Amino acid sequence: MAVGNGHGPLVVGHRGNSGLAPENTAAAFAQAVAAGADMVETDVRLSADGELFLFHDGTGGRTTNVAEVFPDRADAPITSFTAAELRRLDAGSWFGAQFAGEGILFLADLPAAVGFGLGINLEIKAPHESPGVEAALAAALTAPDWIRLLRHHPVAVSSFDPAAVRAFALESPGIPVWQLVETVPDAALLSEGAARGLQGIVADHHSLDASGAEAIRAAGLGLWVYTVNEAPEMSRMLDLGVDAIITDFPGALVDLLGSTPS
């Protein structure tokens, strides 16, 4: 199970370098590269006209100027917008004036945004709001830019929705799938994990303890954790021997790993 990097757990930038740049934008992903991350994590949704784009929230109000551009649709589902409409939105100004003009990023542009130099964890976000997203994602990962990235770096797909994980795995059996959980999964899920094709579990660090970590490992599954931003909790996850730590501050985790005796 290829989940280590030789110097500790994988450092995964949550929505890029989202502690210091607007999440899921080209700027955030470029900063994650510069910070020394091994991977980035991002959220995948399907536009109203079938383009895959990277966005966390169900609506655009928190992280875009949708209320200015489309005042009558400020609270509309972000997936109700066409790709052309999404490209009109500013996804950077909310974070800081220096990021004004950062747009919503589309999946096709992500390999170049990380310079073809990092692994990528693609979370299928709220699949019930993006019917057909699993098949669309599987097809998108066969594009030349994704093939180029996959030659040298891992790509994983995850979701909180077990049905979406299974559906994607059937569409693209060559891409590893991971099950996101809020609590340590029960024995039934762990016992079925390998049969369902899971490479591992992506757990909320708040709910993970030594017994939970051991149960996941005993099931033959990898263990990633999200979203770990404080140094003491990063150290606790290191002690648990997790395979990857997803964080808003990948540079801080890189520094901690550099100062931790091997």
Rank of each mutant, 00 (worst) to 15 (best):
Q31Y: 12
T63R: 12
A203S: 14
I245G: 01
F95R: 13
T183L: 12
S235Y: 00
P162E: 06
L122I: 09
L118A: 04
M237W: 04
E85S: 11
T42E: 05
L54P: 00
G251I: 01
R15P: 05
A135D: 11
F106G: 03
D49I: 12
L208V: 02
A195T: 13
E214V: 08
S172G: 08
L46M: 09
Q179T: 03
V11L: 08
E230I: 00
L141F: 08
L256W: 04
I124R: 05
A91H: 04
D90V: 03
V181I: 09
L122V: 07
L107S: 06
F168W: 06
F116K: 04
I78E: 01
A30P: 02
L10A: 14
A188E: 15
G251D: 14
L54A: 03
L122E: 01
N65H: 13
A112S: 13
R15M: 07
T79H: 08
L223N: 03
D186F: 07
A156H: 12
D49Q: 11
A169K: 12
G96R: 11
R88E: 15
V202A: 12
L137F: 10
T142C: 04
G16K: 03
A203T: 03
P261D: 13
L180N: 07
G241S: 08
P77E: 10
T227H: 10
L149A: 08
A219Q: 05
A26D: 02
P162I: 07
F168P: 02
L20R: 15
V114W: 01
D161C: 12
V133F: 09
R62S: 11
A26P: 00
R148C: 02
M237H: 02
R45Q: 15
G96C: 06
A244N: 07
H7W: 12
L107N: 05
T63M: 12
L208H: 01
F53P: 00
V114H: 01
G251N: 05
P131T: 06
E41W: 07
L221R: 04
F106R: 07
D49C: 11
N229Q: 08
A164C: 06
W224Y: 14
A231V: 15
S80N: 09
S80F: 06
N65I: 13
G36L: 08
I245S: 01
I201S: 07
E68W: 00
F70V: 10
H7Q: 13
D243L: 07
D75C: 05
A34Q: 15
I201F: 05
R196H: 14
L141N: 02
P71R: 09
G200M: 03
A21N: 06
V254D: 02
P111E: 09
L46A: 09
V228Q: 06
A188W: 05
F81N: 06
G212L: 05
A84S: 12
L150F: 02
S172F: 03
L149Q: 08
L107M: 09
I216H: 03
A156S: 13
A83W: 04
A219T: 09
V202P: 00
